[in-house]
Nucleic acid binder design. Structure first.
Lengths: 263, 263
DNA sequence: CTATGCGTTCCGGTATATGAAACAAGTGGT
DNA sequence: ACCACTTGTTTCATATACCGGAACGCATAG
């Protein structure tokens, strides 16, 4: 590298305004961003984005001429073209493929195996796995199906469910052989997982497997997948539990962003 | 108006290229349109749209920097931002409100009452009505629910269903009091309606009501609503049946476009 | 090694986008 | 009736944002 850059590492992660030579386009997209929040008038657009009334008018109407915006009594609103594009993007988007690179990073950073899976009724299906660097590996392979309350991945898929559902699925996973106090403890844990949006799971099968999982949300905010890292309990010795959980959660958020989640 | 315009009615309905002063934006949206068809490389974009490699590169990357496009091994694909915009547009879109103006045109052009409704299981619910100019009016009001096989609107909602479903719903609507040959005749009619994407319906209740209905599709191509015109049988005397059907079908297609349907 | 295809960067000239200003049209207040 | 105010629309001279040609980097292939 050249000597002027190694003094201060410009941390700026190459933001939106990095691209030059497309001012008009960028401004138009800024307008779209404003309209996302709800119908908005020309003057308000100009004010918020610091452009002249003229420009706001011209660009908004250009977008309208292409059906990206529509005109309502309350000003501009999102147009039908976006419905079409959204539907097409959805059909072109393969969540597992999108998640793959993130899972690889997760495994290489943590050393654990990482997984992706989705809900199928009362079951969770594993869709993808990336191996870590550890000698002992969780055996689960893509395609495997497990009772949803029995795995960390499954619990992450359940975070938006009500407590009655939690109870039902937990009891089912234990074949009904469970005391009320066990159920209460389990639900209390789920509450905490829900707040943190991360699941910490110790297998109740006594096989010494521990996993950390987090939900992935789509553009509508629905949980459509979950990812996890998993490995033998002893591998967690000496690891910073909070940091591991943070990494899983961050990866899940990144995948969510790729899936169009805005929140 | 001024005297220069009344000679030749410029039929041009103000196309996309009408808007001036947004070349960059328009070209970028052209690129999006190309990507809809599937992943595409920079050079291919430039070739198809007749722009320089440089420009295609710059605009595509500008769109990518805003997540409207993503980069795949096969070139540019639709990006996550479109998932978000699509979901938001969907939540902002009220089909009934969109359909209203079209229903009003339909009624004023034909004189008949017009209706909009959607499917609820084995029933069809009327959501909106616009009165025509006729003395005799169909009594149906918004909120009314009817067996789905019993109305023109309902049949339009069923056009994408299989023949077994048609049979089941027809038999149910007749409380089982129906011969096999009647069923066959009914299904034969439905087949024809499906081809024409227009339903011609004579009430089997013997109340002298006739209706013409057509399905409305959303961005994913699913039938999500239907519209119809209805009135006493005698009002259809002297009307061109094909022309009426055409008007209903065209209105339905226009509403579908507002709902993001591309086909 | 040359050839070919694609992505990327650079740069000068000009088509193009910009904002000020004025106009149009509606709303509400006095 | 008039004015004050708001929002949408059009016009226009100017500055600059955008364009395309050219050249470079980097593959893959013959």
């Amino acid at each position: 590298m050249d000597s002027t850059t190694d003094m201060i590492e410009q941390a700026e992660p190459e933001a939106r305004n990095a691209v030059k030579g497309a001012q008009t386009l960028m401004r138009a997209l800024d307008i779209l961003d404003e309209v996302i929040a709800g119908p908005i008038k020309t003057v308000e657009i100009a004010r918020k984005l610091g452009m002249s009334k003229t420009t706001a008018h011209r660009l908004a109407h250009a977008l309208k001429s292409r059906d990206y915006l529509s005109i309502t009594p309350d000003g501009f609103a999102l147009g039908p073209k976006l419905l079409q594009l959204g539907a097409m993007a959805e059909s072109q988007t393969d969540l597992v493929r999108l998640a793959r690179p993130l899972l690889e990073v997760l495994s290489s950073e943590t050393g654990f195996c990482s997984f992706a899976g989705q809900r199928e009724g009362d079951w969770s299906r594993h869709l993808d796995r990336v191996n870590g660097r550890q000698r002992l590996r969780v055996a689960t392979i893509p395609g495997d199906v497990r009772p949803i309350a029995e795995t960390g991945l499954g619990k992450a898929l359940l975070l938006d469910e009500g407590e009655e559902t939690w109870r039902r699925l937990y009891v089912a996973s234990r074949n009904g052989r469970v005391t009320e106090s066990e159920v209460q403890r389990w639900i209390a844990h789920m509450r905490e997982f829900k707040v943190r949006q991360v699941v910490d799971h110790d297998s109740e099968l006594g096989d010494g497997v521990h996993s950390i999982a987090a939900p992935v949300r789509n553009a509508k905010g629905r949980i459509v997948m979950a990812i996890s890292i998993a490995g033998a309990t002893q591998y967690y010795q000496g690891e910073d539990a909070g940091q591991l959980a943070g990494k899983v959660a961050r990866s899940a958020r990144e995948i969510s962003a790729l899936a169009g989640y805005a929140g």
